[in-house]
Design a binder for these strands. Structure first.
Lengths: 186, 186
DNA sequence: TTGACGCGAGAACGAGCGTTCTCCTACGGT
DNA sequence: ACCGTAGGAGAACGCTCGTTCTCGCGTCAA
């Protein structure tokens, strides 16, 4: 009996699942791997998450909340509305440089399961919509036209995908520079 | 004995593999599915491609040649160098609208196998490098600064990923408009 | 005609993995 | 001290799938 508290056990399971799913892909990680990495028994794991699919969903959901939270916290530190927009790309650069960065978890999940799991697809769409809406809010707060948000969104998505594939932080700087030019172009 | 010619059999195998791999993801398609869709026997399939991984590689390679060929042919129809750059996004819009469009095959493959297959990762990187180099050429031909190519590349990547996830052609138009503004911003 | 061979159809094999089951240990209440 | 029960370890089960093997048929050379 490693962990009595079921909420703590849940976090342990999700910690292990997140590290493994993000790092090696979802399909190549077995429930046995999650058991080993979490220190929980298979029995406990299945009581917390009755099937692997639900563990996957919980992983994406928790990561979504944390990811957007971290971004928003970083951006909120800047004062100027336009600076806040550029800060998004600064934050991306920091993220890209983190140990173990492997691209956007949702884009990767979509590539892996988008064709077979409607639930995962829905979560990916929801996450991207949230991110896009967040950018829309920043753009509106700066008094800039709505259409800009979509363009910034594409730059950010392109940077994420490109940084993941090439394992470099450079796309963040390129995207930031493009964003800066688009801000001026109005 | 359906097909005697081994080159034709190879094309049949690749036609089936491409349709299935692109449409349903690589891991969820079995060699048996490819057999059924291609009309070839398992024996013949394995003589052409000694393992599934090699079929996957051949699929990505043939698609790479065709994809870049189609893009280049479309773009080459325009005269003006700057129009050619924008034509890339027009072509993307047409692609996004095609029946069965499911995003970028390489981005999807990377999400699915990037963590486990070094060969696939190398092919994805090579494809993206080729595409980027192609944009660099268009930008140079228009007498525009090199840095612009990286920004256009990010817009295109963002549009591909976003169109795949949302199943919409809109990202192509957004990216085109952003590209147009970046061209003017110089 | 005959026999060797190539080929297709599909069974078979073996590994991986999601999920469940068994067994055993430890503890808590009386 | 004793019994009931919860929980962990890991075996077991069933399915999928990549890959190989078997069998039987048709073909072609001598």
């Amino acid at each position: 009996m490693a962990v009595t508290d079921s909420a703590a056990a849940r976090e342990q399971a999700l910690d292990a699942a997140e590290e493994l799913f993000y790092g090696r892909g979802i399909q190549s990680v077995g429930m046995d791997d999650v058991r080993g990495a979490s220190g929980l028994s298979l029995k406990r794991l299945y009581r917390l998450f009755p099937a692997k699919e639900q563990l996957v969903e919980a992983y994406l959901e928790r990561r979504d909340v944390r990811w957007r939270g971290r971004l928003a916290a970083f951006v909120a530190d800047r004062e100027d509305p336009e600076e806040r927009i550029l800060a998004v790309f600064d934050w991306l650069e920091g993220w890209f440089g983190e140990e173990g960065f492997r691209g956007c978890a949702w884009i990767n999940s979509y590539g892996e399961l988008g064709a077979t799991s409607a639930r995962v697809t829905a979560q990916v769409r929801a996450h991207k919509r949230e991110f896009r809406d967040y950018l829309t809010g920043l753009v509106a707060a700066a008094g800039l036209p709505d259409a800009l948000a979509g363009q910034l969104f594409l730059l950010a998505e392109g940077a994420m995908v490109s940084a993941g594939i090439t394992r470099s932080t450079e796309p963040a700087r390129e995207a930031r520079e493009a964003a800066r030019l688009l801000l001026r172009a109005r």
